[in-house]
Design a protein around this nucleic acid. Structure first.
Lengths: 161, 161
DNA sequence: CCAAACTGATACTATCTTGATATCAATTAA
DNA sequence: TTAATTGATATCAAGATAGTATCAGTTTGG
């Protein structure tokens, strides 16, 4: 049972990199190199995020990508939905007006409950939160609470690797 | 994001059928027919469950399968582990002594936390619990609490479809 | 004893999803 | 004007999931 596919994984890490340098355009190439991701594959991921208004882009020399919104408003849950589709139980679910099979429906009911738990958890994880965890870890200081501004030192430490 | 694969789904429903007729052997064929599952595929699933001591079998005429333990001791979590492997985050995790990439590790940390939540939930769902939900639903009475014995009427209603 | 109803074991194929690559046109800054 | 870039697709490879087929061994009832 794999929680995150490559696409989601790459997406999150790319966003973290963009989030660490807000305000400037960062090229797909530099992300791919620094994060060790396949270039063209990453580009597909980035384009998908543009379509969902998570990032914006600029073409041409010195072009690249930039966050389109506050990091605290980009939720891992949404990324999972974009790249892996809504959580669903086996089949049954859609169409098939009311399950033909009771045992499957009972099972489904249980799983939908669990799905909700999972979704709530992923809803709480934002790019902003991850960024704070990163910088906190970066210089071995306690994690910042939500809303608290990280100190400049931590800021410039750089995020990746 | 698919929570249950066919194998797990079939496994659970087969177990529910066995659980509904504890004490007698039920053939793979009858399960396949009643539950509308591909016969040979189901057989593979059943054999896997034998290897994990969830069920036992009897060969030959009048043979079939039977639960090997109390339904309340068969957990959906274990079934998921058997048929879908342990929950894991992207890659990273195994080998690769300590992630080379900090952002991936921070992410991983968050996801491992969520995984634990999921595992706890699936740990709580047993075949016994599902059986009780089924019989409760079967005749529109409130669900039984854990440990409470279902009444005979409910019992004989039959489980499937 | 034998035939039919079964499981054990395994090999194979098909289909779907995920991951990755390649190409070409359009844009932009130096 | 050219090199660095994104936009848009098309294609391919690899892996996971789903499903089929086959044959040998076991058991029971007639």
């Amino acid at each position: 049972m794999k929680v995150l596919t490559k696409k989601t994984d790459y997406a999150i890490r790319a966003l973290l990199m963009l989030g660490a340098k807000q305000g400037s355009y960062i090229s797909a190439k530099s992300i791919a190199v620094e994060q060790d991701m396949p270039y063209q594959f990453l580009r597909g991921v980035l384009q998908e995020m543009i379509r969902h208004d998570l990032i914006i882009s600029k073409e041409g020399v010195q072009g690249g990508f930039m966050l389109a919104k506050d990091p605290d408003e980009i939720r891992v849950r949404q990324l999972i939905e974009i790249f892996q589709g809504t959580v669903q139980v086996s089949e049954c679910m859609f169409r098939k007006q009311i399950c033909a099979n009771r045992s499957r429906c009972v099972l489904r009911h249980e799983i939908m409950r669990i799905e909700e738990v999972v979704n709530n958890e992923f809803e709480k994880v934002t790019i902003g939160k991850l960024l704070r965890m990163l910088s906190a870890e970066g210089n071995m200081r306690p994690a910042l609470k939500d809303g608290e501004a990280p100190d400049p030192q931590t800021r410039q430490t750089g995020i990746m690797n």
